[in-house]
Amino acid sequence: MTPAPDQPLPGLDPAARAWLDTALAEADRAAEAAEDTGTPGPAEAVGTAAPTGSGTASDNVAPAPWELRFAAAGRHAGRTHADAVRTLLLQRARAPLATLTRLYRHGTAAERRAVLLALPDRVAGPGALPLVEDALRTNDTSLVAAAVGPYAAAHLDPHAWRHAVLKCLFTGVPLDAVHDLERRAHKDTELARMLADFAAERTAAGRPVPADLTRALNLTGEES
C-alpha cells in the first residue's frame, strides 16, 4: 500500500492544476501527521466498516482540509477528472479504513464511487466489504460498476460475488466492469445454473438474452 505516484491527469486546466497541487500538499501533510502521531486521522475511531448509521459524536468534527478538497473535486477539477482526483487524494492522504468508511458514509454518489475505486490500493483485508455490499444493494449503475473491481474479486464470497454478476446483468452494467471475471467464473457451476435460469426466464418472457450473459456462461465452462 505505497502511495500512488503523482499522476499527470492530463487535461486539467491551470486553475484546476493549482487547486490539485494544494490539495495534494494537504493530503501529504495529513499522511505525515498521522504517521507522526500514530493516529489515522482527525477524530477517527478505528472500527468496522459499517456503512450505515448516523449521529455519532465524531460525525461533525471539523474535517481535515484535504477532505474538503475530496468533496469539492467535481467543481474544481471537473466531472471527468473527479474520480481520478479523489482516488489520488485518498492515496496521498493514506486514508485508512476508518476514514474511507466515514467518507463513504458521508459521501455523495460520486464520492462513494471514489472510495470504492480506491479500496484495492488502500485496504489489504476484507474489512471494507460492508462498503462494497452497500454499493451492490443500490441501483445506481455507477456505484455497482465501481463495486465489482479488484477488491470485490479478491474478497467477495462466492454467493455475494455471483449475485453481483447477476446484478450487473440486470442493471445493464457491462461485465467488463467485473474484475477477474474469467478466473472467478471458471468452473463455477452455481453461477452457471443462475445464469442459465436467468436466460430461461428472459426467453420465457419473450425478451432477449443479454450477450454478456452468454459470454459469462461460456466462461464458466459449463453446459447451459
Binding site: S54, G55, T108, A109, R112, T138, N139, D140, T141, S142
Partner: peptide, 19 residues
C-alpha cells in the same frame, strides 16, 4: 422525527435523484 431521516433524504438528493 430525527436528523437521521434528514440524512437519508439529503443523501438521496446527492445520489439517487441525480442518477
Amino acid at each position: 422525527t430525527s436528523p437521521a431521516s434528514f440524512h437519508d433524504y439529503f443523501d438521496a438528493l446527492l445520489g439517487w435523484e441525480p442518477f
